[in-house]
């Protein structure tokens, strides 16, 4: 798995765009500098939003053996700024700037047992892993969780490929996943790979720790785009820069501050590294921590946040029922 993550940009031609579930498009790309995509890899690509190029990351759902054909799948996010809308509007023959496959979520070959857990669009990061484990005749279970069947991409294909190794949980059919039951099936020789909403991943992580399983055997990838609460517009004040900025629903606090001209420190922009940490000096509302950098203890303290992914919400408890009227207001000291 000697993964190198040098960003090599290239052009790619859109070969096909087809719907594969409610609001999810399957996009087949033909890169000009093909490189085989390892399971767990993703590509960064430039989308156009309001005429401006913006970088987005998408998992590689499948690739042929020499990487001349890469498949990604994109969910049209209602609260997005327009990146997914742009992707859904692609037509065959159109060209995009994309990177060669990048790897932050490598699959280790040789574990005794695997559980793969995909929540919703998270299947895009997991599907290729499942295909490789099937080819290697590994002992694996693919657990696929969704709100409704019509919103779950690739169900038929996965069912055909994985047969009884595929386990499907659908909320609106009353077959929701029991996280304790799932984690209860893991032992010291099991590796669990997951990609999905942060609520699901937090629940698995907490149960994994409670069960005293080795944390390094729990593998996950986060693109930092989901939280415990729906994103709300909020206001951030930075006395140091004499700034008051409104953070819209479809924009991160880091982006909004950058837009306003603040020079911010950051690196991963997905809540992993902790470099974009800011200190909270005043808050009306609550923090929706969406990072994996802080421990639960640190998140509860509420004194710092990773502004690349985490947001402010109006409710003091975070619950809908006591949501406040106005936007949440947060005052910070940046690093």
């Amino acid at each position: 798995m000697a993964a190198t993550n040098i960003e090599t940009w290239q052009s790619a031609t859109v070969e096909q765009v087809v719907p594969v579930a409610d609001g999810i498009a399957r996009i087949v790309l033909e890169p000009s500098l093909p490189l085989k995509a390892e399971p767990g890899s993703h590509v960064d690509l430039m989308v156009e939003i309001d005429g401006e190029p913006v970088k987005r990351s998408y998992s590689v759902v499948e690739s042929n053996h020499d990487g001349t054909r890469l498949v990604i799948s994109v969910m049209k996010a209602p609260l997005s700024r327009g990146g997914s809308t742009f992707m859904h509007g692609l037509v065959p023959g159109q060209r995009l700037e994309i990177t060669q496959p990048l790897q932050n979520f490598p699959l280790r070959v040789g574990a005794r047992r695997y559980i793969l857990l995909a929540g919703g669009i998270g299947i895009t990061a997991i599907a290729n892993m499942a295909a490789v484990l099937k080819r290697l005749k590994a002992d694996y279970t693919l657990v696929y969780v969704g709100r409704s069947r019509s919103a779950m991409a690739y169900l038929a294909e996965l069912s055909e490929l994985h047969g009884e190794r595929l386990e499907v949980h659908v909320d609106d059919e009353g077959s929701s996943l029991s996280v304790p039951a799932l984690v209860g099936r893991a032992d010291a020789d099991t590796e669990l790979y997951m990609c999905g909403p942060i609520r699901l991943m937090d629940a698995v992580r907490r149960t994994w720790v409670e069960c005293e399983l080795d944390l390094p055997n729990l593998r996950y990838e986060t693109f930092g785009n989901s939280g415990w609460y729906d994103p709300e517009e909020f206001i951030v004040r930075v006395p140091k820069f004499d700034l008051e900025v409104t953070v819209p629903q479809g924009r991160s606090m880091l982006e909004a501050l950058e837009d306003a001209g603040a020079e911010m420190m950051f690196d991963c922009r997905k809540g992993e590294c902790g470099l974009c940490e800011v200190r909270i000096t005043e808050l009306s509302g609550a923090i929706d921590h969406r990072d994996v950098f802080y421990s639960e203890r640190q998140q509860r303290l509420g004194t710092k946040m990773n502004c690349c992914v985490s947001r402010a919400v109006t409710s003091p408890t975070g619950s809908r029922s006591d949501a406040g009227a106005g936007p949440a207001v947060i005052t910070i000291e940046p690093n």
Binding site: F105, R108, L215, P216, E272, V292, F293, Y294, S295
Partner: peptide, 17 residues
């Protein structure tokens, strides 16, 4: 031995990457 970080001394969590 799988090449996975099991401890980052300067923080309470481990960067999953």
């Amino acid at each position: 031995s799988a090449g996975r970080c099991v401890s980052m001394p300067a923080q309470e969590t481990i960067n999953p990457s």
